[in-house]
Design a protein around this nucleic acid. Structure first.
Length: 470
DNA sequence: ATGTAC
């Protein structure tokens, strides 16, 4: 694979074979060590029908199902462009929500153990069923799928600002609940308001450094401020929807004369029945994901109110696993695109019409969850942002779960976090070992490369005080 | 990521 360095942190793979567009990789050489398999996936994605611009990879690229994680691919809806479930990923609408407390870290130091104990009891997590809210039947679940966190707020689990500061105002349009299968519903019913496992977490954090005071202020953040970050997705419901629709598309591809170099790139035209069915189900899963984060927000707020007398206000909520219909100028003409972001975060620039009025001047908040025990970042979109206004989403694994669990025990990880002054409330020792920081790339290097590549600007760095893990 | 295998 030949990577041509166009400028710092921007490499190009010239089209060859069935590639319709080049590959463009934003990263430093260091971050691309051992990236052979995922770069081959960048090349594969460049062959999908209707792809426009390039097959993009973010600095945190790693191997995924069909499409790389850290990949962005936009297809032209009006030119036979396809949608692919593999371009979104199994955890549909996995994303991050950041809340700012009306207190500085130091002010709550004495209350922190009680807050952590409260969160330990209040936040359902780990694999399998269990959530803060059990819908009373199919009716309420359908409302969650159709209206996302708008429904949760309507039911009393939030406030108006929670919708203003959430991507898409709390709910993606176009959810089609009839495309959510029975099995997905069954799995979803039991998991509303739960973290899940793996790299998902709820952290109590403190703003450790502000790089742009004005933008941070517009977001509602200041130096020393206490925050809560929630990283989770659509649990078994999104996973089941992905499984179901991949199967349908795998069978339908031949009918549309589509050939792809890897069956995991299964796709269908955006305007085909299969494409519309997937997008309708995907939107429903996205709404489930937002409602999930909203209900966890409510649970965390109750804990902070009781244990510390503190309020939590939403900074932003943004997904990093989603396909969106967006209009972008390409070669001087607006195109209606299906933008797949898989392990990549939308990063709208200042002035973008879809931003709420109070964020128009600053750009969209981009939330980057760090590895357990390390920093997380708040970034913002920039004018002229490349890759259809997208940037990185996190650190990215370098050790498999098995390798990580062999390298360290959960108790060792806990001891290290304790020594660093970070309170951890794990669900399992094994899970803690699998998430040890050395299993991941350095999130700071990922963020630095993203900024160097011109994809975003760094606004603030947050460090954890307490971690709630699945 | 995921009822960590259909």
């Amino acid at each position: 694979m030949e990577l041509v360095e166009e400028r710092p942190c921007r490499y190009r793979i010239e089209p060859y074979g069935a590639m319709r567009v080049p590959g463009v990789v934003f990263a430093s050489r260091d971050l691309l060590a051992d990236a052979e398999k995922s770069l081959a996936q960048v090349v594969n994605v460049a062959t999908v029908p209707g792809i426009l611009g390039a097959s993009y990879a973010m600095p945190d690229i790693h191997w995924g199902y069909g499409f790389p994680i850290g990949g962005v691919a936009a297809t032209d809806v009006d030119e036979g462009g396809v949608v692919s479930p593999g371009g979104v990923g199994f955890d549909i609408s996995c994303g991050v929500r950041l809340l700012a407390a009306d207190a500085r870290g130091g002010e709550l130091r004495r209350a922190l153990p009680a807050v952590m104990d409260g969160l330990d009891r209040a936040i359902p997590r780990g694999a399998g069923p269990g959530g803060v809210w059990r819908p009373s039947g199919p009716g309420p679940l359908e409302r969650i799928l159709a209206d996302g966190s708008r429904y949760a707020v309507e039911e009393g689990y939030g406030e108006e600002r929670d919708l203003v500061r959430c991507e898409d105002g709390g709910a993606v349009a176009g959810a089609d609940v009839t495309q959510v299968g029975e099995r997905a519903r069954q799995r979803g019913l039991a998991q509303v308001g739960s973290l899940g496992s793996g790299n998902h977490f709820l952290e109590v954090q403190q703003v450790a450094e502000v790089y742009d005071t004005a933008v941070a202020g517009a977001f509602g953040l200041a130096d020393g401020q206490l925050c809560v970050m929630i990283h989770c997705g659509s649990r078994g419901l999104g996973h089941q929807i992905c499984t179901d629709h991949v199967r349908v598309m795998d069978r339908a591809m031949a009918r549309y004369g589509i050939t792809v170099p890897d069956r995991q790139l299964a796709c269908a035209p955006v305007d085909s029945p299969e494409g519309e069915a997937y997008l309708g189900a995907m939107a429903a899963a996205a709404n489930y994901g937002r409602a999930n984060r909203q209900l966890l927000t409510h649970a965390a707020r109750e804990v902070f109110r009781r244990a510390a007398g503190a309020r939590l206000s939403l900074v932003y909520d943004v997904s990093h696993n989603l396909a969106k219909t967006e209009t972008h100028d390409v070669a001087g003409r607006p195109h209606r695109l299906c933008v797949h972001r898989k392990g990549a975060t939308r990063a709208f620039p200042p002035g973008h019409p879809e931003l709420p009025p109070d964020l128009r001047g600053s750009g969209q908040p981009v939330l980057i969850p760090g590895t357990m025990g390390t920093a997380s970042y708040v970034l913002t979109g920039v004018p002229g942002g490349d890759a259809f206004h997208s940037t990185c989403h996190g650190a990215g694994r370098v050790l498999s779960r098995h390798q990580a669990a062999r390298a360290v025990t959960g108790k060792e990880v806990r001891a290290r976090l304790d020594a660093a002054g970070i309170a951890v409330r794990p669900r399992s020792w094994r899970g803690l070992a699998e998430e040890t920081p050395e299993a991941y790339k350095d999130v700071s290097a990922v963020v630095a490369a993203s900024e160097r590549a011109g994809l975003c600007r760094t606004v603030a760095r947050l460090v954890p005080l307490g971690v709630v893990k699945g």
